[in-house]
Nucleic acid binder design. Sequence first.
DNA 1: CTCCAGGGATGAT
DNA 2: ATCATCCATGGA
Length: 299
Amino acid sequence: MKIDRSQRIPAPDFDLALTLDSGQTFHWEKAGAGFVGTIGDRATYVEQRGSVLKVHEGEPPSPTGRRPALPRVVARYFALDHPLGKICASFPNDPVMQTASNYCRGLRIMRQPRWECLATFITSSMKQVAHIRQISRILRRRFGEPRWLGEETIYVYPTPNRIAQLREDDLRECALGYRAKNLLATARMVSDGRVDLEQLARLSDDNLRAQLCKLPGVGAKVANCVMLFAYERLHAFPIDVWIERVLRQKYFPRRRKLRAGELRDFAASHFGVHGGYAQQYLFHHARKTTPRRLSVRPR
DNA sequence: CTCCAGGGATGAT
DNA sequence: ATCATCCATGGA
């Protein structure tokens, strides 16, 4: 008979499914009543029951040294310590923000591994979330190390060293298109030590952004995503096509001409010290409530 | 079929 | 600084 190895973690003010569907990570998949995925190199099952998470993990591939206990790893990954009440209370009191805030109750900005977050957002340029997920799945299955979780195999995100060994064509075969060159070049910079992603955590927001933007395939938007999702810079405000649409339509409906710089300055000042959280709520609300265009058009 | 997607790099104003 | 153009791919 099977032993229930699951552990329980208190998780108030948290919505697991909402958080995993919000376009931060791209690899978690539904499994039974919960989700399976990796947290760093650990294959993990997570299931929410009310305000408690049930978690268990797969066996490590080989005898390993002592590792942090899984509940602490999960709690840190999902940022269960973020004071969500205070964060939401810091949002501006305008109807657009309040609607998004109410819609996204329990959504948390996760603490992702640096390389994994950087690499996936390099592959995200001009891609829908569904396709970013597909690219992540292919890269993991082809180049990532396997882990076993019960009956199923989970793949860790490939390391910078592994990607750096590949040829551009290997990545193009993973449907990366023009992004292949950028992912490869950035992987080689991280792999050979020209950039130390962990050391970058010391830098101020502006210096961190500047350093990230030196990496091939990283501009302001991707840099802000990586700052927000992997460096805990909760003021970073990525502006993608969805957010730009929201800002222009909801906050500047009568301004035909509006420079990108003006949008950036408005976002930085209007949404408060946790602007990144506000941005994520606006993004997810817009993406989930904007009706898809009907497929059949008159001719 | 067309339109669009969690953009970046480059070159011209 | 700001804008135009190109870059691959596949879902809807």
